[in-house]
Design a protein around this nucleic acid. Structure first.
Length: 794
DNA sequence: GCCGTAGGACTACCA
DNA sequence: ACTGGTAGTCCTACGGCG
């Protein structure tokens, strides 16, 4: 990229937009832009904060004189203007109240006795929406010193290349003789880093080492200033590494500030997520990112430790030094090399995770219009909200306010009716076809123009619930959503022609994934209690139309003579004799659907199992296993896909399902179960296979009832370990104690196990439901019964 | 006070 | 701290019994 050229005697510069903030100098507020051109620079652009007041035009003069005194500071209005904006689709004249400083906005708003709008939009984002800027856009500008005198234009950062950002991952090791390290006492003994260029370890023991901890911190500080990465990456660095580094640096009075351009490092909170900001760079903590990706199904891991995530997405482990306690021992013994190897590997894994997931994160930032650092701390709901704010501004529409806490409570109190799930009949079936609606809810929103502003009694689209929506003009939400889906369709077509190993392919497939993630979050956002665009009527209409379409499909299938086994939200399971007839049926359904909606063939399956519920004879919903024609088994809902069941129970259930679906030998399945029970009784199963993993969703003090995972967590705390909200506890049911909670012991401390518990509460419940479909009862299963093959059973 | 159980708290899944 | 629908475990309060 050419970063500067001459036009009519003036120098026009160009650079990637990395971050936006603001600063105040005297009476003027400036937006600060971190722009990466040939060099990275922090630039200033004068811009005034403002909000809108819905009052008669003639009040503009009066409003200009509003004054508020707060903490001896007199807060005044800079000027007022008359503007036209749309409120829920209707044009209206509003008074724009321009202020001197961003923090003045809420104070002035509070003293104005008319309805106000857009008073709670973070100022840097306000600027980005106003100028229609996205993160990593290329801006063209003229400057005079640090001041931008003119923004000449914006080039959309939509090239097939990702922005050229330099990055460095790091990790620290800390002594922990008392369990969780204490900032006051326990020193940092090592810092490792892995950048685009090189890797290394800093320590103060052994060859070529720093003199002491203080010097090590200062070396690290210098390292970062020399290499000057745009992005600093850690793992749980928001809550551990960075605050610890800062605390130690303060205690030791070390020169330590990883920020650029005189900025600061500080802890921040966005919603409920904790972050740590390094001004002038982008601090990326991989942990919350991977947590979110786990939540939305981009990755799947048993828990979200660096080790577990590396295993699941890179197929690699951390170096095993035998637990965190060993660091003290190795350090004492002077075996610094081992710690260094361990520490560097952590930085390396963190770097590799970033290489893998930063492209998606960057695309999410560009799509949602949130700066990268903000994006790493955001939920999909916040990303959708930002995107809608951006487009509301483009369309000249007022951004609705956030709901009050009373409104939030009211919304939560009355949930919206959701999807339809058909009750399956338990049994083993052959020849199953699965059809599903592609992107059901997004396609409904677009097809019926569902938006808070299109609701109208004279609307042409009438939802099964009764709400009617106008066909035109297109609402903000359907328009933005359609934009995402159209862009994605285009990218998908382009990807087919591309070399899968190319840089462009990686960038575009990440972009496609980001578009999909956001598109799929729109319905949830409409029904999200804290949403600015919450609409009960809209959300209810989406699900009502969804239920109608799936039920119509079931009915049509039955009319065609298919047996419908099961249906959930957007999918139907049919028993077929002739594949052609299934396709024929699908095409027929599609002819009658709106253009954006489509029923697709998900697949044909050789065999499938549905089981009954534990307590009743009725079939269990959301629980089935299907054997595909390629021999692969698709399993949903069974214990074996849940982390809160022991590996031994899951493994046994998996083997039983496989034997039944693939080999059809129920006696062989019974044998597997009996062998497992025998091994358990003989104490032959390793404790790792008996661990049950459960997350603590609240702080331990906040629970009303005790539970095994809670009791196990408390036992960890007794050992001086920090266990809090979000921790995933691995525990084993041991022999000591009366209740199950009492018996629960953290895996790390477990010595023995209660075989009866594992047989009666883990193996048998997991396996019985399946064996019951084959005519086994518990007694015959355990003690043996007469031989019978699945062929005879059918 | 002991026993059995209904209902509540809680988690993790499916879509 | 994006939605609702669902199964299942374990705990606890409660009622019956004596």
């Amino acid at each position: 990229m050419v970063f500067r050229n001459r036009e009519g005697g003036k120098i026009i510069r160009k650079g990637w937009l990395l971050d936006v903030g603001y600063t105040v100098k005297g009476e003027q507020t400036y937006i600060t832009l971190i722009v990466k051109g040939k060099k990275t620079a922090k630039l200033l652009f004068p811009y005034d904060p403002y909000f809108y007041v819905d009052a008669p035009e003639e009040k503009a003069e009066e409003l200009k004189e509003v004054k508020v005194v707060r903490k001896e500071e007199e807060i005044k209005v800079k000027r007022t203007e008359i503007v036209e904006k749309k409120i829920w689709g209707k044009m209206r004249k509003l008074i724009k109240v321009v202020c001197y400083r961003p923090p003045h906005v809420p104070h002035l708003k509070a003293h104005i006795p008319y309805p106000c709008y857009e008073y709670s939009i973070p100022f840097a984002r306000r600027f980005m929406y106003d100028l229609q800027l996205s993160p990593f856009d290329i801006i063209k500008y003229e400057r005079k010193g640090p001041l931008i005198t003119k923004i000449m234009g914006i080039e959309r950062a939509e090239s097939k290349k990702s922005p050229a950002l330099s990055k460095m991952a790091f990790d620290i090791e800390v002594l922990n003789p008392m369990g969780t390290p204490r900032e006051k006492e326990d020193p940092i003994i090592m810092i490792s880093y892995r950048s685009d260029k090189e890797k290394g370890v800093l320590t103060f023991k052994g060859d070529g080492a720093c003199r002491d901890e203080k010097e090590m911190l200062e070396h690290f500080d210098k390292k970062i200033k020399d290499e000057n990465p745009d992005i600093l990456i850690g793992y749980n660095s928001s809550l551990f590494d960075l605050p610890y580094l800062k605390a130690r640096a303060e205690k030791l009075k070390a020169q330590f500030n990883l920020a650029r351009f005189g900025g600061k490092m500080r802890a921040v909170q966005k919603g409920l997520v904790h972050g740590y900001e390094i001004k002038g760079r982008v601090h990326v903590d991989m942990y919350p990112i991977l947590r979110l990706f786990g939540y939305i199904g981009v990755i799947k891991a048993e828990n979200y430790t660096l080790d577990a995530v590396s295993e699941s997405v890179l197929g690699e482990h951390k170096i095993d030094i035998g637990g965190w306690e060993r660091i003290n021992e190795l350090w004492e013994k002077g075996e610094v090399g081992k710690i260094a190897e361990y520490c560097l590997k952590d930085a390396e894994l963190t770097y590799r995770l970033a290489e893998k997931f930063l492209p998606l994160e960057i695309e999410l930032a560009q799509t949602s219009k949130l700066p990268l650092f903000q994006t790493t701390l955001s939920t999909t709901g916040q990303m959708v909200e930002s995107l809608l704010m951006f487009h509301a501004q483009r369309r000249g529409e007022i951004i609705p306010p956030r709901p009050t806490s009373a409104e939030v409570a009211e919304r939560i109190a009355r949930p919206i009716k959701g999807a339809f799930v058909k009750l399956p009949e338990p049994g083993i079936y052959s020849n199953i076809a699965v059809l599903d609606f592609r992107g059901l809810y997004p396609s409904i929103i677009i097809s019926y123009n569902i938006d808070p502003a299109t609701i109208s009694e004279s609307g042409e689209h009438k939802a099964p619930k009764g709400t009617t929506f106008k066909k035109a003009p297109k609402g903000l939400i359907p328009e933005v959503l359609e934009g995402l889906l159209d862009k994605r369709a285009k990218i998908k077509r382009a990807l087919k022609e591309m070399d899968k190993d190319s840089e462009e392919y990686k960038v575009l497939s990440a972009r496609s994934q980001a578009l999909k993630i956001l598109a799929n979050s729109f319905y949830g956002y409409l029904g999200y209690a804290r949403s600015r665009w919450y609409s009960r009527q809209c959300a209810e209409s989406v699900t009502a139309w969804g239920r109608k379409h799936i039920n119509d499909t079931i009915q049509k299938a039955e009319e065609k003579g298919f047996k419908v086994l099961y249906a959930d939200t957007d999918s139907v399971f049919l028993i077929y004799e002739d594949k052609e007839k299934v396709i024929e049926f699908m095409n027929e359904v599609n002819k009658a659907l709106p253009e954006k909606m489509e029923l697709e063939l998900e697949g044909f399956y050789v065999r499938g199992v549905f089981v009954s519920k534990k307590s009743e004879e009725k079939g269990a919903k959301k629980k089935y296993a299907l054997l595909g024609e390629d021999g692969r088994i698709k399993i949903r809902g069974f214990e074996l896909v849940r982390r809160d069941w022991s590996e031994i129970a899951k493994e046994t259930q998996k083997r039983v399902l496989e034997i039944i679906l693939k080999e059809g030998s129920k006696e062989k399945a019974a044998k597997v179960v009996r062998e497992t029970i025998k091994a358990l009784k003989e104490g032959k199963i390793e404790l790792e296979k008996l661990a049950i993993k459960t997350q603590l969703k609240k702080e331990p003090e906040k629970y009303e009832v005790k539970s095994p995972e809670l009791e196990a967590a408390l036992k960890l705390r007794e050992k001086g370990l920090q266990v809090g909200k979000g921790a995933i506890i691995s525990y084993v049911i041991g022999r000591r104690g009366t209740s199950i909670s009492e018996k629960a012991t953290p895996l790390e401390l477990a010595q023995d196990y209660d075989a009866d518990y594992y047989i009666n509460n883990q193996i048998l419940p997991a396996v019985m439901k399946i064996m019951k479909e084959l005519g086994y009862d518990e007694y015959t299963l355990i003690h043996g019964g007469k031989q019978q093959s699945l062929e005879e059973f059918f």
